[in-house]
Design a protein around this nucleic acid. Sequence first.
DNA 1: TATTCGTGGGG
DNA 2: TCCCCAAGAAT
Length: 355
Amino acid sequence: MTSLVLDLLDWYAQHARSLPWRGIPDPYAVWVSEVMLQQTRVETVIPYYQRWMEHFPTVSDLAQASQQQVLAVWEGLGYYSRARNLHRAAQLVVGQHGGQLPSDPRALRDLPGIGRYTAGAIASLAFGLDEPALDGNIRRVLARLFNITEPARSPAGERRLWELARQLLPPGRAGDYNEALMDLGATLCTPRNPDCGRCPLNHHCQAYHLGVQDERPVVLAKPVVPHYTVTAAVIERRGSFLITQRPPDGLLGGLWEFPGGKLHPGEDLPACLQREICEELGVSVNVGDLFGIYRHAYTHFRVTLHAFCCHLSNGQQPQPVQVQDLRWVKLAELPGFPMGKIDRQIATHLLERGG
DNA sequence: TATTCGTGGGG
DNA sequence: TCCCCAAGAAT
């Protein structure tokens, strides 16, 4: 074991964070936490993790739940394919692995939602195998320690960093090693303003010696994000509201929303809404007062959504032409349908004003 | 290989 | 207000 790794493990023995999923000998708990932590902060995950384990304490409980129940518990965490994949994977574990999560990284990677990082994390943390796990923290720590000048997310950078993570790994202590690097990255070796003065590895750190820690890891230029104007219809009929279910995959897959869509060039807002409702539901709407304006930033685009109060013409029966499903629901039933953030805001405003 | 996928907090 | 980006995976 190199002195660098020795210093790292010594520091971890003193400064390891106490997290709800640590020290729990249940591979399922490790799995759930790792999937929730993908691209998501620890502080955000903690309450979701605890609620999830209350709703679905075992793989079997998760496998038996409906996708709607699963999405409802996941609502607000984002990247909903994680929830859909976790659900499917639980059913595969029950059906193909006798209810026990496999320990072999290759078998883990065959499960939906488990990639190279998560397989290594589960294998090392839950099963004690000597597997590296390169996440954003470890990528940053290693890029600084060894002054990696290739962009960290480039193929060449990825190769070097995975190689380093595997070379440094102390046999028999992969779990602590991986956790230690992640804790160091999360608490001291942070993306901005790293606290190099308190870092237990500063005398090993090439970037620190060169004074370039703020420029490591090298990041690729990011594309500009487009901005879309969209509309949504709050359609009321005899005390019920019309909501539609999004397609099973893709953005907010399987979640419910107030129907509508993207504004086309040269179109005004009511025309956009009438066109979208006709395309999706095969009916024409009468567009009334503005209900509200909502802004939201997704990862790779932004939207401004204009919601309007609408009614269907007499006798019109909407059909699920371009949506997975549709439902007329009472106000009190809205909280039970999983939704993304914007549509949840609309539903909440609807509840607050009592229809 | 490059895009697509949410949301919330901090600077 | 805006930009950054956080324990990545799938296609």
